[in-house]
Design a protein around this nucleic acid. Sequence first.
DNA 1: TTGAAAGCGTTACCAA
DNA 2: TTGGTAACGCTTTCAA
Lengths: 350, 350
Amino acid sequence: MSPLLESARARTARTSRLTMVDIARLAGVDVSTVSRALADSSRVTDETKERIRKIVEEHGYVVNHGARMLRNKMAGQVLVLLPNIAASFFPEVILGIEETLQNEQISVIVGSTQHDRAREDVLARQILNGAADGIILLTGRIPEVLRSYPGFEKKIVAVGRALKETEIPCVNIDNKRAIETAVNHLVERGYSDIAHLGGPHGSPTFSARIDGYKAAMEQAGLASNIRIAAGERFNIDAGRDAMERLMREGKVPAAVVCASDEMAMGAIRYVRSQGLSVPRDMAVVGFDDIPFAGVYEPPLTTIRTPRRQMGELGAKMLLKNLRAPSFKSKSIILNHELIIRESSGGELDR
Amino acid sequence: MSPLLESARARTARTSRLTMVDIARLAGVDVSTVSRALADSSRVTDETKERIRKIVEEHGYVVNHGARMLRNKMAGQVLVLLPNIAASFFPEVILGIEETLQNEQISVIVGSTQHDRAREDVLARQILNGAADGIILLTGRIPEVLRSYPGFEKKIVAVGRALKETEIPCVNIDNKRAIETAVNHLVERGYSDIAHLGGPHGSPTFSARIDGYKAAMEQAGLASNIRIAAGERFNIDAGRDAMERLMREGKVPAAVVCASDEMAMGAIRYVRSQGLSVPRDMAVVGFDDIPFAGVYEPPLTTIRTPRRQMGELGAKMLLKNLRAPSFKSKSIILNHELIIRESSGGELDR
DNA sequence: TTGAAAGCGTTACCAA
DNA sequence: TTGGTAACGCTTTCAA
């Protein structure tokens, strides 16, 4: 047993709080009546309800969560699993999830996995032990422990990072098409020597972006110009490293499409350190439109992902699944948006 | 198949999951023995433990969280309350908190309050109903509902945003001195016309920064140059707005010290839109050293706050308080660090 | 409309 | 070392 538990018990006597029985006693009724009153059951007189409510208010009584969980087999909590909360993509998704769930009196447990399977499993145990009712996956993969759980598919929703398991509903954008949008933008601007700074190959999301890049280049008849530098992360450092590799290995590309805004910034920083200028010497397009993209210098042309909305819809979808397990949710693809700023030359006058 | 197993199966079908009773039946022992075995009590033979462990493993049994909570009066969860998870200061603090607590098998509930007292109260109820054992406040103020809770001070720790209530322990930097460091840096560089873009007056944190600015200016004999533009937020937009006000109201300051990196970026963006250049026409110092500060153009001179460490120490402090409520934790002040980059002219050769 | 009582799954005390 | 059992605080069915 954890030491935290031991001392909690020792303290119980002192910290002991009012229970429903106490309220019942004070109101001169049975616990069951209090329970019904608090649930606003129609089988309690308004008069009694009012009396009870007043006493509850007065004494600051709050229903015990553990007991309620035990009875109802519902935790009123949802687990959000993500690889790294410090990556700018996630906080706004969480915001959307929280806003939606707070309205439903459901709270959010956030678990940062650091891409570690063992951590994913430890955190996902909260579904197994009932501490969480459902799980919103921003990691792009299902924790192994969940697979043995019967009917687990009904408790999972993916957001922003698609899963290989297509039977799990997902709220996402079309990553392939989004990168195509970015490439086409550069092609329209007259660029042909366009490289891609990509994220981890293992991730469906980032490999979809890599595929989208290839497809768009081929469609534009630029197959021979395809150049990709991809790493294991998609943060600032990964962007710098990828750009460094690209420039060391061959000539400086005329333009690059990056798998994230953070990579774009890391890349631009490196380009500058080599005495080059963006967009004059190289056009750059990012991905996500994080808040900093617009104030970066140069402001980043990027693909806007509707992160908050993704969070909202993911949360709603999960709720629907939890409440009506027979209902079969369909995945949702949201629209991305090309935001043209100066890193690719800015808006053109026509 | 053994009849024991069959009955366990039958039970499983009826109820949703395996319980300890099922495991006991399968192992041919009493529930109490299973409970002890799982708690690794010394009052169970290694042999029995091993047998039970194997069955547990085999059937993927997990202890029910609600029942455990009800018995132990412990949730194994900590609530982290913050105003806005999208503000760059917070995610790394959360990371530090999570890492520390994950090692202790405690999970983190994140609550974004949007600066709304009602939301703070709703979220803080989780302390009252026992869903969370303690609370780490990054909001700078105590939710009202908690005040009526006896001994609530022992369950609260503040991180990064000091409270007015000095009896609650806090992990923080010395905000006043930190801003003084920033101002002095500019003074040493020969600037005298130094303004401050501040955060919300109502926040002890940001008013400490405002005070620090004033104090440093006075100490440098520049009291007459004091100029402050402060808003209700400390994000990019707030920085832009504050700078706009400053430039509309009077002459362009030679340098500004900002209350956050985000404000600095918003401010620089506005300065640029007016055709001026940083640091040539204006030196800028930020606050926090968020990851983007180093890749911004120009890279931001800023005050580095040890956010991850703050989270770690805050979590440890809370644990200590929860485990030994008689222990009186002392607040911790961590060192800040001046990071000199180009937005204030860069490193000088000597 | 209200009360009584049976659990929910676990832990800890007391016996054996 | 193990078993039996009484809580923990709540909800819900069944009676009254």
